[in-house]
Every structure is written in structure tokens, then in C-alpha cells.
């Protein structure tokens, strides 16, 4: 037991040193069946990766807020990648959800959560903001109404 506690608290020291990290590259299929590779889109502007699922209640509210942000800044170069972590039991509902809720983003399918784990995700929603150099500048888990105000400020800063 004491060994575990030591390791646990030692591991916390890492947080103090954690810095800006290069976004791990990945290739995922979109809902149209085409592959999307993240690194091929670096350099065009900030990229917001949002991990969500059809069964996730806070994700619904967050996606509504992201829709407004995307519409406002897409012409300035903002890209939004909406990565569904729906697994085989719910992935068939992604396309219907996207159509009904009129999500305008690029929708990618991470059916076994491999990319979600690559980004250290444990529960959706998870938002990861990447600058045009491919570095992670901001991440946020969960969603409370008003979170989008902070996110928007970070995006505006990157667009300047």
C-alpha cells in the first residue's frame, strides 16, 4: 500500500513540469469513408479537436456552443475536428445525429478510442486546441455552460 502511495504522489510531480506538447499525429476515417490525417492540416490555422459521443449529455450542450464558435471563426482559418468515440454499439447513430443536429464540422470516427487514449482522454467531452505549428496550447475535459467563453478567448488569441 505504502509503495503505491509513494508512486502516486511522485507521479503528481510530473504535472509541475508538463509543458506545451506537440499534438500526436493520427489518421482516422470520416463519416464519408475518407481518411483524415491530422499532420497534413497543420499550418493552415488553429485546430480544435473535440472528442464526443452520441450517448454523452454534456457533449450535446458543448457541440451547440462549438457550432456558434465555428461559424464565427471558420473564415479566419479555424478548423474543428469532431471526433466521435462511439464504439461499435452506437457508431451507427453518429451520422443520424450529425445530420439532425446539423453539425458543420469534420466528423471523424474513433471507434475503439485509440486516438482518444493517445490524447490521454478518460471521459468525453475532451477539447484540445492546437496552434498552427501543431502544438497543444489548451485542453479541457467536461463541459459547463460558459466554458466556451474561455475557449473562444484562446481561439481569438491564436487567430491574431
Amino acid at each position: 500500500m505504502h509503495r503505491m502511495l509513494i508512486v502516486f504522489f511522485l507521479s503528481l510531480t510530473n504535472f509541475a513540469f508538463a509543458g506545451q506538447t506537440t499534438a500526436p499525429d493520427f489518421t482516422l476515417p470520416d463519416i464519408g469513408g475518407n481518411n483524415y490525417q491530422l499532420s497534413k492540416n497543420f499550418g493552415k490555422g488553429p485546430i480544435l479537436i473535440n472528442f464526443w459521443a452520441t450517448w454523452c449529455l454534456p457533449c450535446r450542450s458543448e457541440m451547440k456552443a462549438l457550432k456558434k464558435i465555428y461559424k464565427k471563426y471558420k473564415d479566419d482559418g479555424l478548423q474543428v475536428l469532431s471526433v466521435s468515440v462511439d464504439d461499435p454499439r452506437t457508431v451507427s447513430k453518429v451520422k443520424g445525429t450529425v445530420k439532425t443536429y446539423r453539425y458543420p464540422f469534420t466528423i471523424l470516427l474513433d471507434t475503439n478510442s485509440e486516438v482518444f487514449q493517445l490524447y490521454q482522454g478518460t471521459n468525453p467531452p475532451l477539447s484540445v486546441l492546437i496552434n498552427k505549428n501543431g502544438e497543444i496550447v489548451y485542453t479541457h475535459t467536461g463541459y459547463r455552460k460558459g466554458d466556451e467563453i474561455n475557449l473562444q478567448k484562446k481561439i481569438v488569441k491564436l487567430l491574431k
Binding site: 509503495r3 509513494i6 508512486v7 502516486f8 511522485l10 507521479s11 503528481l12 510531480t13 510530473n14 509541475a16 513540469f17 508538463a18 509543458g19 506545451q20 506538447t21 506537440t22 500526436p24 490521454q120 478518460t122 502544438e135
Partner: peptide
């Protein structure tokens, strides 16, 4: 394994200066 892990945990923060370390903790 425990000793190796403890050493790694001490060393890794210094490596993080090169901005290539990532992870998560869930308790």
C-alpha cells in the same frame, strides 16, 4: 519493477523540458 518505475518517475519530469512527455492519472 517498482524501483525502475520510481526512477523513471523522477527522471521523466526533466525529460519533459523537451516537451515530449504526456500522460494521465486516474484515482
Amino acid at each position: 519493477i517498482f524501483n525502475l518505475l520510481s526512477i523513471l518517475i523522477f527522471i521523466l519530469p526533466t525529460v519533459s523540458i523537451s516537451q515530449k512527455i504526456s500522460g494521465n492519472i486516474h484515482t
